[in-house]
Every structure is written in structure tokens, then in C-alpha cells.
């Protein structure tokens, strides 16, 4: 098996597309981290819930795919905000003085993730369900050298770019976006400036969960939708967030693309069955060499 430039390019293109989806989830994790100073371990489950909501809206209700995407984002945002309000808010209000030495949030998120997977079992069962979306109106992309990119990948790329631009616009040029950045920077001062901090925290959580849901709906037509999809996605999105620099939003996207490409090339040229390990390898590598990530500012450590 010689080296084939065309298939190499194809691996890179598919890697980038998958990587962008990782990046979107990582964006949510980064957003929560910079806004709330917590690492959300149940974010993969938000992604899984989003995928299922999209599936239900598109296949059972019969909405067109883009509408289902938006609907899933809104529903997941509401679910996420309620989870944060009911469970996490109690811990964050403790002001970091957790009696379990800062482990409280991690353990709580971990337990929440397991609980949510099993709530999903209740509702949707264990089978993997195919996500049939009618995407005929999207053109297939034809690259030179017989590389054909399926519709769902093209759509993923387009929607991801729209989401990123939207998030950037929201954070940079709107008033609530300014408030979110103020909260992320310093909560006490944000309070003093008259910003409704609890509301902003809810907003951050909602936006992050909506992003995860979008990723779930996007990846649905490429793979199938199943209850246990959240965990691996969480790990890869974490890897992406850390590689790019935790808390840095462009870093999250670039980290996601790196993880996607790295993983696809590894699966193609080293061993396909070890595919899911490469993301962790990259993660460990980056953590050892530059813990703050490629684009991270000096790591904001919460002990």
C-alpha cells in the first residue's frame, strides 16, 4: 500500500469536518469554563440529548432538517439551563469553598452524566437509530482528484461556520454578549456594574448546551444516534478544548480540527481499531508540553 495523495487529502478533509463538530462542542465547554469556572462533565450528554431531540423533531414530527436543528438547540438549551439551575447553582454559590476540595463540581458533573445517559435509556432505548435527513438540496462537493464529499459533511461545514460567526457576533457586538464577557472576567465587579450575573450564567449555560445540541444534530446523519454517544464526544471535545487552550474560543475550534485530523490520519495509517485513543494521546502530549494549550492564556487554575 503506497502513499496515495488523493486518499491522504480525503482523510484530511473528513478529519477537518468531523473536527469542526468536535470544535463546536469544545466551544461550549470552553464557554462554560470561562463563564462559570467549572468543567462540565455532563456536556457530552447535552450533545446526545440534542441529537435525539433533533431526531424526534425531524423524523417523528417531520420538520425540515434546519428547523429541527434550531428546535433541538432551543429545547436542549432549556434542559441545560434547568439542570444548571437545579443542581450546579447550589455548588457554584458556595463560592469555590467546596468542602470536597474543589472536587465537588467534577464529581457532581460526573454523576450527572451517568444519570442523564440512563434517563435517555428510559426515553429512547439502547438501539442506535439512523438519522434520515433529506439533504438532496445540498450539492455534493467535488474536489479535484475524485474526492467527493457527501452532503451531510458539506452541510456540517456550512452550519458550523454560521454558528461560529453567530457566536462571535453575539459575544463581540451585542450588549448581552458584553455582559457575558464581563461575567467571565470578574463576577464581583460585574455585579457592581449592575449586570444580572445569575441570569448571565444561565445564558452562558444555555448557549453552550445549544451548541452541543447543534453538534449532535449535525453528526446525526453521518453516524447514527445512540444513547452512549456522549461519552466519547465529551472526551474528544475536552481534548479539543485543552489542545486549543481552555477558555479560548478560536482555540477550541482549531483544537477540534486538530483532533479530528489527527484521529483520522491515525486511523488510516496506524490502526483503525485504536481510533478513539489518538485524541487522548494528543491531549496528553499537549498537556505535558504546554498545559495552557496552543492558544491559551496562562492557565486559570481553580483548585
Amino acid at each position: 500500500m503506497g502513499f496515495d495523495l488523493n486518499s491522504f487529502l480525503a482523510f484530511i478533509i473528513f478529519g477537518v469536518t468531523i473536527g469542526v463538530v468536535y470544535g463546536i462542542v469544545a466551544l461550549g465547554i470552553s464557554l462554560i469554563y470561562s463563564g462559570l469556572d467549572i468543567v462540565h462533565f455532563a456536556h457530552g450528554e447535552m450533545y446526545m440529548f440534542g441529537a435525539f431531540f433533533g431526531l424526534v423533531l425531524a423524523d417523528n414530527v417531520g420538520l425540515p432538517y434546519p428547523v429541527a436543528l434550531v428546535g433541538a438547540m432551543i429545547i436542549t438549551a432549556i434542559v441545560g439551563m434547568s439542570v444548571e439551575r437545579v443542581f450546579y447553582r447550589r455548588l457554584t454559590r458556595a463560592g469555590g469553598g467546596y468542602t470536597v476540595a474543589g472536587m465537588g463540581m467534577i464529581i457532581c458533573g460526573f454523576g450527572m452524566s451517568v444519570a442523564m445517559v440512563n434517563v435517555a435509556y428510559f426515553i429512547w432505548g439502547a438501539e442506535a437509530e439512523p438519522f434520515r435527513a433529506n439533504l438532496d438540496y445540498i450539492p455534493r462537493l467535488q474536489f479535484p482528484g475524485d474526492i467527493e464529499v457527501p452532503e451531510s459533511y458539506v452541510l456540517t461545514a456550512i452550519i458550523s461556520v454560521i454558528l461560529m460567526i453567530g457566536l462571535h457576533y453575539f459575544l463581540r457586538y451585542t450588549k448581552p454578549g458584553l455582559a457575558v464577557r464581563a461575567v467571565a472576567h470578574n463576577k464581583d465587579i460585574a455585579y457592581l456594574m449592575g449586570i444580572n450575573v445569575p441570569l448571565m450564567i444561565s445564558l452562558i449555560f444555555g448557549v453552550a448546551c445549544a451548541l452541543a445540541a447543534a453538534a449532535g444534530v449535525l453528526i446525526g446523519p453521518m453516524q447514527s444516534v445512540q444513547v452512549e454517544m456522549g461519552y466519547l464526544m465529551l472526551m474528544k471535545a475536552f481534548a479539543a478544548a485543552v489542545v486549543g487552550g481552555f477558555g479560548s474560543l478560536p482555540g477550541a475550534i482549531i483544537g477540534g480540527i486538530m483532533v479530528g485530523v489527527f484521529e483520522n490520519l491515525g486511523a488510516a495509517y496506524i490502526s483503525a481499531s485504536h481510533k478513539d485513543i489518538y485524541a487522548f494521546l494528543l491531549l496528553i502530549l499537549v498537556l505535558m508540553v504546554k498545559p495552557s494549550g496552543l492558544f491559551g492564556v496562562e492557565a486559570k487554575v481553580k483548585a
Binding site: V39, F238, V242, L283, I284, L287, P291, V301, K302
Partner: peptide, 15 residues
């Protein structure tokens, strides 16, 4: 050696 808190949890979870 280099990580604390959440970062360490991530790294160990991955490993």
C-alpha cells in the same frame, strides 16, 4: 506535576 483541579481530572480520565 503541571496540572491542577479540572485539568488533572481531564488528563486522568483520558488516561
Amino acid at each position: 506535576v503541571r496540572l491542577q483541579g479540572a485539568y488533572l481530572a481531564l488528563a486522568t480520565l483520558g488516561l
